[in-house]
């Protein structure tokens, strides 16, 4: 099978870091700013960034609905930090629009402001040993999740890594580390979706 083509939403955020990690993990990766480049993607990653900003830009550049349509049609999706907020059903305690791709309620800046941003050795059963070097930056946590959502890792008593079918969400930033296990996990999901 050829390498999957994975788009990284590039309205704003740490796009290059994801592109490089995906390319190290057996995918062809490129930035997505338009509906045309979205259409050329087998899967989409929404990177770290500012959710308040990207939600507005998705609306302004008319990319939100096409993404929802593709994911409902089975396109694999992974959101990191901002990307997970954008994908959530709702944002706890805030009137913030989201795409509703993951049946979770997220709390923004749940661990605190930048001063509370931290690096943590996170145990993730699905990735085996050693522990994963998780980087949390003004990170959200999962306040509540629907029955179809599998919690793959928790930190400080809250889910920070979830999967629902072909949709993945992480509160932390695997793209900021040299450990590509989450990227390889996602590329594996994308390949499974293509052959299934």
């Amino acid at each position: 099978m050829s390498e999957p083509a994975i788009g990284v939403l590039a309205l704003q955020g740490d796009v290059d870091e994801h592109v490089r990690a995906l390319e190290r993990s057996g995918a062809r990766a490129f930035p997505v700013k338009t509906r045309a480049s979205l259409a050329a993607s087998d899967a989409l990653v929404v990177p770290g960034g500012e959710s308040t900003t990207v939600i507005r830009l998705l609306d302004r550049f008319e990319l939100g609905d096409p993404i929802v349509e593709r994911v409902r049609g089975g396109m694999p999706f992974w959101g990191t930090c901002m990307g997970m907020i954008v994908a959530a059903r709702d944002v706890a305690g805030m009137d913030q629009k989201t795409l509703g791709l993951l049946d979770i309620s997220v709390r923004r800046n749940a661990f605190g402001r930048q001063i509370a941003s931290e690096e943590v050795e996170l145990h993730i059963e699905a990735l085996g040993t050693p522990a994963f070097p998780a980087v949390f930056i003004r990170a959200p946590w999962i306040e509540s999740a629907g029955p179809g959502v599998e919690i793959l890792a928790s930190h400080r008593g809250h889910g920070v890594f979830v999967r629902q079918g072909r949709v993945l969400g992480t509160s932390f930033h695997p793209e900021l580390t040299a450990d590509d296990r989450v990227h390889r996990y996602f590329v594996g999901m994308v390949n499974a979706a293509r052959s299934g």
Binding site: G13, D14, D16, G49, E119, V135, I137, R138
Partner: peptide, 13 residues
Amino acid sequence: TVKRGLAQMLKGG
């Protein structure tokens, strides 16, 4: 990593 990381999240903005 977390100090430089926040700036990485602001890129393109």
